[in-house]
Design a protein around this nucleic acid. Structure first.
Lengths: 156, 156
DNA sequence: TGAAAAGCTGGACAATTTGTACAGTGGGCC
DNA sequence: GGCCCACTGTACAAATTGTCCAGCTTTTCA
């Protein structure tokens, strides 16, 4: 799927995103065209989804993160509910899941008080039967994919 | 915290990350120096955490995502467990949480069979008492922050 | 076994962008 | 009124990008 050079390339750009193709080729000691081709291929294959800016919700004032498990009314299915949840800015992510719950959402809020408001909004969404939430107290491992890249490109 | 121009800037770079400062200034109809200064400030304030490549775990072959709630042994605390979990590449994210569970992890695996293996690895981590997992069947709302940016920069 | 295909190298070129600086202008604040 | 700050518009050298090419090596496949 990806080889060792791809792995080094991704690691390099993760560590120093602004270096550019030329500098990357120097660091990796390969021709510029190679870096360019690899990058194009990784992007085409969807391995690299994009280079967008990573926004820190906390820095925007959304200091509280919580995970909400939703139980939905049987009728209507998941998609309409998801569409309505998508209207709520504080819903950062949503998955349908196995198990007793039907949906798991990641939400953010400005404070614990604000979290109450956000949860109320969610519970008010048509199709949502009940919601149970847990608050993230600390992020022990921030979202990461580098270990996967290393594993997939096999080198320790 | 961030104003309307910051919001437009972030949106633009999210939509087309590769355009560069000069093109961005043309699109936003402001001077290049302004874009540069804004970007610097946003990065300095931590609002923009970085411009690293976004890696798609699924494209790397990790097609299955699951959320695992861990109960920990009381003794020892969270941090040592988190440190050990960090050794497992498939643990993509981990939070300490309120409620009956102690920790919530996002994990990925190559298949449902592989998921079993990953969960076994996690349960084997010293300090982990038990783990209960739910599988993500579909991503209804992919991780996003743009609505927050819009909300924070207040414009619809 | 032999030939085609694919990937990498190293180099070249024009066009564009970046980094950086500076003077001028307008609004907000004390 | 006066100061500070952000933005504008401009300038210039240096660096990077996009694109192409010829030659070489390795892999693939009939």
């Amino acid at each position: 799927m990806i080889d060792e050079l791809d792995g080094r390339l991704i690691e390099l750009f993760t560590a120093e995103p602004r270096i550019g193709v030329l500098e990357a080729s120097r660091r990796l000691k390969v021709a510029r065209g190679t870096v360019q081709a690899r990058l194009d291929r990784l992007a085409r294959d969807g391995v690299i989804a994009g280079f967008g800016p990573e926004i820190d919700a906390a820095a925007l004032g959304y200091a509280v993160t919580a995970f909400v498990t939703l139980q939905l009314r049987q009728a209507g299915g998941h998609d309409p509910v998801a569409a309505r949840l998508a209207q709520v800015p504080e819903v950062i992510e949503a998955h349908t899941i196995t198990g007793p719950g039907d949906m798991l959402c990641r939400i953010v809020a400005r404070s614990n008080t604000d979290l109450q408001r956000v949860i109320d909004v969610i519970v008010d969404v048509a199709g949502v039967e009940r919601a149970s939430s847990v608050i993230s107290l600390a992020t022990q491992i921030p979202y990461r994919t580098l270990p996967l890249v290393r594993a997939a490109s096999n080198r320790s």
